[in-house]
Amino acid sequence: MSPTFSFSPTRRELLAATAAAGAVSLVAGVPGAWANGEEIRPFSVSFPQDQLDDLRRRVAATRWPDKETVADDSQGVQLSTIQKLAKHWATDYDWRKMEARLNAFPQFITEIDGLDIHFIHVRSKHENALPLIVTHGWPGSIIEQLKIIEPLTDPTAHGGSAEDAFHVVIPSLPGYGFSAKSTGSGSWNPPRIAHAWAALMQRLGYTKFVA
């Protein structure tokens, strides 16, 4: 009679089983110019008030076109929609509140392949947490991922178990957020970004990770 096995992997174990091999092979292929010990510099967000005031003035000074001649969006985005959006940015949006949200997490800058890359790095307090790198989309920003940091790094505070814990790294893509943009002709395509992320994780001391 054959023995019966019961296996119920945690979410973290499932991710590790499916992705770690690829991540390890990517790290192994990172050339020295990408990975060798460049400085990791602390970073925080702070914009001068006069820049915020100038932005609001420029939004408020928008010269609006005539209203569309139809009752739908067949002629493009409707004037009322654009005016509501402009009002939100000019008078309603609280950038200082967003600055505080960003600065509540450890942020850093490091140069990889000639570009300064901005990233958030939050280590879990749980032993044996799995390193995880999270990439935002095109277009997008790391702000979209702020809400997942605490549940992933501290799952026990959100109804999970310590076995589901991750160390979380969230970089800004080149040309997005606080990462530098390329000034050369070379394309920062997905394979190049993947190698940069592998270099980043290796620089942070992670030899195995999931993405």
Rank of each mutant, 00 (worst) to 15 (best):
V59W: 13
Q49L: 12
H88W: 11
A33Y: 12
A211R: 10
L26K: 00
L152F: 15
S2Y: 11
V24L: 09
H158Y: 15
L132G: 01
P31Q: 06
A61V: 04
A60H: 08
A35L: 06
P31H: 10
S172W: 02
A90G: 03
A86G: 13
D113V: 06
A33Q: 01
P65M: 02
R56W: 00
R12H: 05
L152G: 01
M98A: 14
A71Y: 10
H158G: 09
K147S: 14
G114K: 02
F47V: 15
A194V: 03
V27P: 03
L26M: 12
G159F: 03
F209A: 07
L26R: 14
A19R: 15
D66M: 09
S182Q: 08
I133A: 06
S182H: 12
G32P: 09
N189R: 00
M1T: 15
H136R: 00
A71K: 15
K97E: 13
L14M: 11
N189G: 12
D154A: 04
I117G: 02
T4Y: 04
L173G: 07
A33M: 06
G186N: 13
T153F: 01
P106W: 00
Q75C: 09
D53A: 13
S182E: 10
P42Y: 02
L132W: 10
S124Y: 03
Q145G: 07
D73F: 13
R11K: 10
T156L: 10
Y93I: 10
A157P: 00
F166N: 05
E13A: 14
L130W: 09
K147I: 08
T153P: 03
P31D: 15
W64C: 14
W138H: 13
M1C: 09
A28M: 01
E13V: 06
P31K: 11
D164R: 03
N103D: 03
W188K: 08
E163T: 08
I148P: 02
A100C: 08
E150Y: 06
T4V: 15
A86T: 01
L85Q: 10
R203H: 00
V59R: 08
D92Q: 12
F7N: 14
H126W: 10
H88E: 04
G22P: 00
V70W: 09
T62M: 07
V210C: 01
V45K: 01
G29A: 08
A165T: 04
V45A: 00
G137E: 07
R192E: 05
N36P: 04
I117Y: 11
